[in-house]
Nucleic acid binder design. Sequence first.
DNA 1: AGCAGGTTTAGCG
DNA 2: CGCTAAACCTGCT
Length: 156
Amino acid sequence: MTYREIIFSGILDCFVELDYNTELCSIRFLKGEERLKETRTKIASIELDEYFKGKRKDFSCEMDISRLPAFSRKVLNETRKIKYGTTITYSELADRIGSRAVRAVGGALSNNPFPVLIPCHRVVAKSGIGGYSSGVDIKTRLLEFEKNRSITFNSS
DNA sequence: AGCAGGTTTAGCG
DNA sequence: CGCTAAACCTGCT
């Protein structure tokens, strides 16, 4: 029994698919042009939708990453601490978990099952934006969006 | 074992 | 500044 919800992201101009089991198990961006029907009943879908509408900065929903390798879990848990509208580099993230495996950090991020919820887009290269498994264009838009939105949050 | 990464640094033009 | 090469560590075959 698997359950699927779809929301639309205006800022990314694409649909986003959330797969649930008993818990949320994956998030991905849909590339196709086709119109899809949106459904938002689960907490993660609702919170993610609010995020895309600029009404939410952090997430309360549960994310199960227990089956991932230990190193990946460390990386993702550390990534969750990065605040809205800010960025750190791959090497800094490696430092924070007491490792020098900057490349492996990138590898762990590329396997992030919950993009946006676990803000791997906030990890950038020392010079340049770095990569993003769903496409660097998405990463760029997310960062731009958060940067502009931070100003709004602070001044309101 | 071997290999490929969402990197980084240094070295050279 | 741009390009190349090598070192770094983890996870998959």
